[in-house]
Design a protein around this nucleic acid. Structure first.
Length: 376
DNA sequence: TAACACGTATTC
DNA sequence: GAATACGTGTTA
């Protein structure tokens, strides 16, 4: 059953997405654009309404372009946060399409930021950006992953876009069956870049995101070899072998022996490695798997020595964790200096629970199809 | 019981 | 050392 559970997390293709501008809480949307490749093989997703989504983001972009411009011009002020935002969001809307003013458009989930309009300039990043920036992604028109080499049609491909959309860079990878056709669109548009950028950002910006991403050379131990039980151990495949462009998330589906909680996010990095999600992670240098990290519970709960006093870490996959920006208006944000608390909207759902009650079968706050919202 | 304040672990 | 954020005691 765990396989079914995992399937539902990604998008099983049965979700209605005919709601038009329905709330994002119902998850009809992004899975088709986030570069998610699922590994359960037999599911098929319709090609989702990408155009509508892009229009929506463009609307945001235009609005914030104006907002930022007005604020900067009228008030004669510069908002450093805008620059920070731009650093990550700009690649989502390359100037070629949306213009310079797009800087500052933010990729947050649209439904939980009612104040974002008036507080756009007050939005804060949870952590300062890394000092060293990753190699910037190539412009969409020149991204190396657009090469035909990795866009060769998969022999078992059955779902996804019509073959006429091959130029869209759809790459289906599976274990002997067709993969869900919800794949990427990433070459012909900007979502790939957003994924790429966000992934890179997440890999650097905060511990929680680092948690999500451990290098593939550790992933086999992380997964306990579980993926192999499915016939394909993606962990051991460099992304390049699979033709996955950086930023594409491979979500290994299907049940894994004795590992009910292994939602295998795997993300192709710009190094063409698959990054493997280890739930309950830690960023321990020595321990490949979070749950054993000295930073968290080793010797604590794990040894039966009672509740560990070690700090837990964000799960990295729940909706709040996927949120990249602070709301700027909650008490935690307002009292940043004295409160020592993360934005309420970013507070991990798991951490809200009592310590010791962690049981992530599936993040309860992650409705189907929203698993990768943070890329937008 | 939720919000707040503070200690402190963790990361950079 | 500063910033971030978790844990927990206190307060409203």
């Amino acid at each position: 059953m765990s396989g079914l559970t995992r399937s539902s997390v990604v998008e099983n293709g049965h979700h209605s997405h005919g709601g038009g501008q329905s709330s994002s809480a119902h998850g009809h949307h992004h899975s088709g654009q986030t570069g998610v490749v699922t590994m359960d093989g037999c599911g098929m997703n319709p090609v989702l309404d990408y155009t509508a989504e892009m229009e929506r983001y463009r609307s945001f972009a235009n609005f914030y372009a104006k907002t930022n411009a007005n604020m900067n011009a009228v008030a004669g002020m510069n908002f450093p946060q805008s620059a920070k935002l731009a650093r990550i969001t700009a690649p989502m809307f390359p100037g070629g399409r949306l213009g310079v003013g797009v800087a500052g458009v933010t990729p947050w989930g649209c439904h939980d930021n009612v104040n974002m309009n008036v507080n756009a300039a007050a939005m804060l990043w949870g952590r300062k950006p890394p000092v060293h920036q990753a190699t910037p992604p190539a412009p969409p028109t020149a991204h190396p992953s657009q090469s035909a080499a990795h866009m060769q049609p998969h022999p078992h491909r059955t779902g996804g876009a019509p073959s006429g959309q091959g130029s869209d860079g759809k790459q289906l990878v599976g274990h002997g069956h067709a993969l869900q056709g919800q794949e990427t669109h990433h070459h012909g548009n900007n979502n790939f870049l957003s994924s790429y950028t966000a992934a890179d950002h997440m890999a650097k910006q905060g511990h929680s995101h680092q948690d999500m991403l451990s290098l593939s050379d550790r992933s086999s131990s992380c997964n306990g070899g579980a993926a192999g039980a499915n016939g394909v151990n993606m962990s051991n495949f460099p992304a390049g072998m699979l033709g996955l462009p950086p930023g594409v998330i491979v979500m290994a589906m299907g049940s894994h022996n004795n590992i009910p909680d292994s939602s295998h996010f795997q993300m192709a990095t710009n190094h063409n490695q698959l990054l493997t999600d280890c739930h309950h992670t830690n960023q321990s240098n020595s321990s490949p798997c979070p749950s054993t990290s000295p930073g968290m519970n080793s010797g604590g709960q794990g040894s039966g020595g009672g509740a560990s006093k070690r700090k837990r870490k964000r799960c990295g996959v729940c909706a709040p964790c996927r949120r990249l920006i602070n709301c700027g208006v909650c008490s935690a944000c307002r009292n940043r200096k004295t409160g020592h608390q993360i934005c309420k909207f970013r507070k991990c759902d798991e951490l809200k629970k009592k310590a010791g009650s962690i049981q992530i079968e599936r993040p309860p706050s992650v409705p189907s199809g929203e698993a990768f919202r943070w890329f937008f």
